[in-house]
């Protein structure tokens, strides 16, 4: 894994002095990609939503974040051709997720997408296949998604297998994630037999890509922690309880590149209405 990481850094032109833990891979959806790639053409101070876009992109420029373009996102972007600005952005700050085994990856992506759509709780209307595919591809790779359209994505499976959307007043419950044990192990864990536990962990794994950092925010869309900071939720780490347990069972795919990632590293400032 270490070799892979350094190869990746070389390929992605990340400075070799950047420590592994400082580099986070995060998938982005198409709209975030477009905003991110087109909104940094000058050095003028930008505030509000685009200020956030700029902040996150600056983290990429500093080598702290590397954006992952999933196959579906790339195909959406390429359908009318990539602009020179977008090509440059990809070359500098992104890596493309290229399935090793295309057939197997496609099969799993379709299966997961169907599951996301069937969950039926992402929003009142039906979840589009395109969005479901982006989630599925990210999930297979063990990545979080950065989106500005969380309403299409956020689904949370509770311990009973039911799904619900997070309410605004629940955000503090999910970000920042500092205690995965409380988040992801149900109270009745001790009553689960091995098969139930395996099913539970599989379910959680499948919905991991739904931990989403939002870059769209504002009075009605606040995605903030208790200190009022907009944050990108932390992915699972190799050191949390579930990670250890599931690794042992060979079920869990931990993301080595984001181990020990701390959302405070992003150091994002609170958004105030009227900054636009």
């Amino acid at each position: 894994m270490k070799d892979n990481f350094y190869n990746l850094k070389q390929k992605a032109h990340i400075s070799p002095d950047i420590k592994r833990d400082d580099c986070q891979l995060v998938a982005i959806d198409t709209n975030v990609f477009i905003d991110m790639s087109h909104h940094m053409r000058d050095n003028k101070k930008v505030t509000g939503f685009y200020g956030k876009i700029r902040e996150i992109r600056l983290k990429a420029e500093q080598g702290q974040i590397r954006f992952v373009i999933t196959p579906s996102v790339l195909s959406e972007l390429a359908v009318h051709g990539l602009s020179p600005i977008e090509v440059e952005f990809i070359k500098k700050y992104c890596v493309i997720l290229e399935p090793k085994d295309k057939q197997a990856f496609a099969k799993e992506a379709v299966s997961l997408s169907r599951e996301y759509i069937r969950s039926g709780a992402m929003k009142p209307s039906k979840t589009p296949w395109g969005d479901a595919l982006i989630m599925a591809e990210s999930t297979i790779a063990g990545l979080n998604i950065l989106t500005n359209n969380y309403k299409d994505f956020v689904v949370y499976k509770d311990e009973h297998g039911g799904s619900k959307r997070y309410k605004h007043d629940k955000y503090d419950d999910i970000v920042p994630r500092t205690n995965y044990k409380d988040d992801y192990i149900p109270e009745n864990l001790t009553h689960m037999n091995e098969n139930e536990l395996v099913s539970y962990l599989k379910l959680k794994k499948r919905f991991r890509a739904l931990d989403i950092g939002r870059v769209n925010y504002g009075m009605n869309y606040g995605y903030k922690n208790k200190n009022g900071y907009t944050v990108i939720p932390m992915p699972f780490t190799t050191t949390d309880y579930i990670g250890k347990r599931s690794e042992k069972e060979g079920l869990w795919r931990t993301n080595q590149f984001v181990t020990n990632f701390n959302s405070s590293k992003l150091d994002l400032v609170p958004y105030e209405m009227g900054q636009e």
Binding site: N4, L8, L82, K91, C94, I96, E98, A141, G142
Partner: peptide, 13 residues
């Protein structure tokens, strides 16, 4: 065509 950097699902994990 563009010489983009790539990563496989196995490398991410």
């Amino acid at each position: 065509k563009y010489g983009f950097s790539t990563i496989s699902e196995d490398e991410v994990k």
